[in-house]
Design a protein around this nucleic acid. Structure first.
Lengths: 353, 353
DNA sequence: TCAAAAGTGTTATCCTTACACCCATGT
DNA sequence: ACATGGGTGTAAGGATAACACTTTTGA
């Protein structure tokens, strides 16, 4: 039994903005907490280590968790958070490997914050990073990413076959087909977390190799007699393409956030938290596309948001645009009172890939 | 500053079953943590004090939070939980009033569990209680509860007018109309938490009076110069009809659970966790009705679940029924693989009230 | 004049809702 | 026979998705 017997509460914030058509996530750089030597194609991540912003929960100072997050985010980055939502509380054993050397169990309460633009931060080594550099398989705006068929699926198939009996193979196959789609199903863009967890379990993300190396593998389901996953060239190539790692289980927290945000788009008007007061319909569409990771059908998108009375036109028009000047719209706050679930709707373009 | 400077982690479980057409919640009875003298119509709650089951999080013994919940629930009640989902983490100052006398800040991680039937518990003073006795205004199966128009709305209107300026009154009015519906909006049965919080703030539930009496009012927004809410006869009558209180903020946790469960019905096949392996469509409908709190249109409900391929018929039929024997159906697990959001759909009957 | 974007119109199709009706069994 | 619940048919209305097309600007 390696379990810690005390615990500590931390707060983690996933702070999201959308700029230049990409979802950006605020990260902080810091010295690595745990840096085992990693095999060659993964050493590109060896120099700099990024984490989600985090801070302690101080019961004496913080009346609520929300206020706690707001307060240290402002201190650390100068950002004044608008929309803020509790995500999930993470507390798995060994999520912080310092437990292995006597450290306490760290319970982290994850938060999702949306800010209007990626202003530069106040002080401290914070940096806005494109969200899809952590999840390259999630961005379908230019069609299905090739890596899904060339790399992920073959590796997952191999992982399925490494299970120790037919029943376990079937379970793995079912999970893969739910998470990554199949003939009859298709891609469900909300299942970000399920996909990340599957890749972690299948040993296809850097964190998985790292945690394994230091004896702190998160998912213990595989203590069973499943065959270990050989670290051969194919798997190494795969590992080099599955995106940028984060410290501890922060990429899992980020996956939780992206999945939640994608789900929420459909039934709550959260996009507007990321847009200026007045915006064009194209801007609105591009923000939705950036977050949902799918390309949208322009005409139908416009009609949906207008028919659903989510926005109202203003008198003004954009001038310095490339084509015909667009009307500026604003969010119609009254929908909140009128409709139970005022989301944006995701009329996806047919995927050509 | 009355803030505690240390904290402790607890786990709370909302354990739900549906029996005899009512959603049941497992509660434990215990000596009151805080029992101020309450005005007359409220003393019916003075004898016995109920709370949600809770237990400590033990980092040494519990590999994950989920496993922690499962383990002490089994110990305390003998129940073997099936479906289990993390709800929310509660940590507001004074949520446990023992903080006022030097106790630590208690951070509670709330869980929702669904069990197949309300079997009697193992040991300990646990009891299954009808969920709507905590939220009488949430049960619309026999039409709109009269109390909404006769009691809640008048009292909320009064509360709106107690705000100190026009802007605050407008904010309150908007919140009321979103939570409780209005001409253009209607009742959104998922907003259970918003409604409970509004009633708490407006001083219309017992907990609000209790917490005020001991100086631990949860929502501090009203430290402002809003007029206090007079505790006159009308308000006392209202308080006597707004349902059974729970210890601490457990009714808030319960409201969170019910809201989440109602939302989830629509896009995840969670109902089946509450039903036996094989069931009739009427049973299925009644469970959905019990949870969502609305009556459903029989024919359309049947077609929806069948067309959506959520269930498949078995060979067997029920025999001891009143009318024609019904086919027994079972959950079609394959939908999980086939459709992204396999929920039940809520084709409500027109409300006649 | 052309590219780039804004914006309109029109279908086919599917899903939902509502209503009407018949069927099988126990009392 | 009739009450109770099981079960089917159908048609109207609305929302969505797919398509084709026009308009207004800057370069």
């Amino acid at each position: 039994m390696t379990g810690a017997t005390s615990n500590e509460i931390g707060l983690n914030a996933v702070i999201v903005a959308v700029t230049d058509g990409a979802p950006r996530v605020l990260t902080v750089e810091r010295e690595a907490m745990t840096a085992p030597a990693l095999p060659a194609p993964l050493d590109k991540w060896a120099d700099r280590h990024f984490a989600l912003p985090f801070g302690p929960f101080e019961p004496g100072a913080h009346r609520t968790l929300d206020l706690g997050v707001r307060s240290w985010v402002e201190e650390q980055t100068g950002l004044n958070l608008g929309y803020l939502e509790q995500l999930y509380t993470f507390a798995d054993r060994h999520r912080d490997p310092r437990e292995l050397v006597g450290g306490p169990r760290i319970v982290s309460i994850g938060y999702l914050a949306l800010v209007r633009e990626a202003q530069p931060h106040g002080e401290g080594p914070a940096e806005w990073i494109n969200g899809y550099s952590f999840f390259p398989w999630e961005d379908w705006r230019d069609g299905k990413p090739a890596m899904i068929d060339t790399i992920i699926h073959p590796q997952l198939d191999r992982w399925i076959n490494l299970a120790s009996n037919a029943h376990k193979r079937a379970r793995r196959a079912e999970r893969v087909s739910i998470a990554f789609g199949s003939e009859d199903a298709g891609w469900d863009f909300e299942r970000v977390l399920e996909r990340y967890e599957l890749l972690y379990e299948a040993g296809l993300v850097t964190e998985s190799v790292r945690d394994h190396a230091i004896g702190a593998l998160q998912n213990h389901a595989d203590k069973s007699n499943n065959a270990p996953i050989p670290l051969d060239d194919d798997r190494l190539t795969a590992l080099a393409t599955t995106g940028r790692p984060l410290e501890l289980d922060h990429r899992r927290i980020l996956a939780t956030a992206l999945g939640r945000l994608r789900g929420k788009l459909k039934y709550r008007p959260v996009v507007f938290e990321l847009l200026p007061d007045r915006f064009t319909l194209l801007q609105l569409q591009q923000v939705v596309e950036a977050l949902s990771g799918v390309g949208l059908h322009k005409q139908n998108f416009r009609r949906l948001v207008i028919n659903n009375k989510l926005v109202e036109p203003t008198e003004d028009r954009v001038t310095q645009s490339r084509g015909r000047p667009a009307k500026l719209f604003r969010f119609r706050r009254d929908v909140l009172r009128e409709r139970p679930t005022p989301g944006v709707g995701i009329p996806a373009r047919r995927v050509t890939g």
